[in-house]
Simulated scan of single mutants.
Amino acid sequence: MSMKKIHELEVKAFSQLTNKQRYNYFVTKVFEWKSVWGLADQDGWVVTEMSEDIIFPLWPAEPFAEKCQINDWQQTQTKEIEFDELINVVLPDLAEDNVKVATFIVPGSDQCGVLPAQELLNDFLTLQEQEKSKEANDASSE
């Protein structure tokens, strides 16, 4: 379990980015740190609804998730999901159930990147492929 230390200023700065910037930060950091954070209560993972969609909120690091433990989510705990579990179990299950993912909700902002779980999974799989081919290239150039 690598606990990434994130400075309060970083939390503040990244919380002010546009959806697309936050999404790119989210994907890059989750891939780099090999984990993602959600919120859970006694009933399990916290989900929310937007229009007709069920949304599963995720954050790139615990301090971002902690910022959202307000209002309806005051009684929640932050919970880490290992990257392998995320791409092999969580996202495929969410995709199958037609649940969307909210990446990096920020308190006080009604903007956040919401997308089908399958799209997020595809982005992570693409990064994995790129990493593998880079490692292969590095190995062959030695």
Rank of each mutant, 00 (worst) to 15 (best):
M1C: 09
S2L: 10
K4R: 13
K5G: 06
I6D: 03
H7I: 09
E10D: 14
V11L: 06
A13Y: 10
F14I: 11
S15Q: 06
Q16A: 14
L17D: 08
L17H: 01
K20V: 09
R22W: 06
Y23A: 13
Y25M: 14
F26K: 00
F26G: 03
T28G: 07
V30D: 05
F31M: 07
F31N: 09
W33E: 12
K34E: 15
K34F: 01
S35D: 12
S35I: 04
S35N: 15
V36E: 04
V36S: 08
W37Q: 04
D41E: 12
Q42W: 08
D43R: 09
W45T: 08
W45P: 00
V47G: 04
E49G: 08
E49D: 06
S51E: 15
S51A: 13
D53N: 11
D53S: 10
I54Q: 13
I55G: 05
F56W: 05
W59Y: 08
P60T: 04
P63A: 03
F64H: 09
E66L: 13
K67V: 12
Q69D: 02
Q69I: 10
D72F: 14
W73F: 15
W73S: 00
W73N: 07
Q75C: 02
Q75K: 12
Q77W: 12
Q77M: 13
T78D: 02
T78I: 04
E80D: 09
E80T: 06
E80H: 02
V90A: 08
V90D: 00
D93S: 14
L94D: 07
E96T: 14
E96V: 11
V101R: 00
A102K: 03
A102V: 01
A102I: 06
F104H: 07
F104T: 03
F104I: 00
I105A: 10
V106Y: 02
C112R: 03
L115I: 07
L115G: 02
P116M: 08
E119G: 05
E119P: 03
F124I: 05
Q128N: 15
E129K: 05
E129W: 02
E131S: 09
K134R: 15
K134Q: 12
N137M: 09
N137S: 15
A139D: 10
